[in-house]
Amino acid sequence: MTKNKGLASFCCLIYAFLYLPLAVMFVFSFNDARRNVVWKGFTFKWYGSLFHNAELLSALVTTLELAIAASLFASVLGLFASYAMTRHAPFKGRGVYASLMSVPLMMPEVVMGVGLLSFFVRAHIPLNFWTLAGAHAMIALPYTASSIRARLLSLKDSRLEDAAMDLGATEWEAFYKVTLPLAGPAIFSGALLAFTVSFEDFVTSFFIAGIGIVTMPIKIYSMMKFGVTPEINALACCLLLLTVVLLASQKLLVRKDATS
């Protein structure tokens, strides 16, 4: 393909636009000033005070626990659902299930948030860690399902299970000794996506996190709302690093999966 200078510079501008806030955040995380607009000097103290902020650390632990629970639920549900959708003989109602599974992507989060809040409160279901984890799993389900579905479809052509069954394995043995290990990386990469979805989620948690459950985004929200502290930038840089690591490992998994 030929080069296109105009388009390339346009894209550079878009990338600059996308990275401008991240760059500002990074630079200002070293700013030695309480008011965040003027540059006063270089400091590491905000990073230092992050690790002594007990509230922040406990919010981090809660967010991690939540993300682990949600990604576990979402990957198990996504595995069963996408297995039936891709590997089973076509059955009546498959289209209905398929569109049902994509509903969470088509629903503004604020609608899910207030819906869950009013439903749980009216049905006298306590708002606790598990209801929040369940809601996060629901939001993440389309991500895990599509990741696993892609892998199961590509495995379908390899007919390795047929070979296993020709060699005397039952269907179940072929599933958990052949299919499951081969789909493993895709399941894990779907789980990483779900983890990220849950980790970043603010809107749903904002509405249905019960009293006493403070996740990282909720903590950041209240820091922004009541009393700005420059710690936010330092915190955001750490979170960004975590996100990059998660995404990079997910990408690596997908690539390894494609080459194997």
Binding site: F91, R94, L100, P104, L116, A135, L141
Partner: peptide, 29 residues
């Protein structure tokens, strides 16, 4: 998965999940 009932059985967990965390909340709204 030759039997449609098996397919439905495997889709039940996800469907129930979406029912409890999405469809019922929106209906109640």
């Amino acid at each position: 998965g030759k039997d449609p009932r098996a397919s439905h059985a495997m889709l039940i967990p996800a469907t129930l999940w979406l029912l409890c965390f999405l469809l019922l909340p929106v209906a109640s709204l």
